[in-house]
Amino acid sequence: MSTITIDDLNRLLTEEAGGTDNGALTSELVDTEFVALGYDSLALLGIATRIGKEFGVHISDEVLFDLVTPRAVLDLVNGVARETR
């Protein structure tokens, strides 16, 4: 199981929901809330499905909507990835 990077997240978000309102999602924006980046709950549902397929980590809806920043998503997915390694 591979770890997920901010670049992966940028790619998934762009493919599923379009680019952010302020350019590519980079490490400078890792603590900016998704809402401030222009992403709604449907965008998060979209990337959760993609993360399940590409990174093998299932994120339930209850957990998903508590993940308000890119960092929270990265930490969750990479944490699960470490535990199952």
Binding site: T14, E16, A17, G18, G19, T20, D21, G38, L42
Partner: peptide
Amino acid sequence: LPARLLPQ
């Protein structure tokens, strides 16, 4: 239109 609107 902005990029965010295109995939939806």
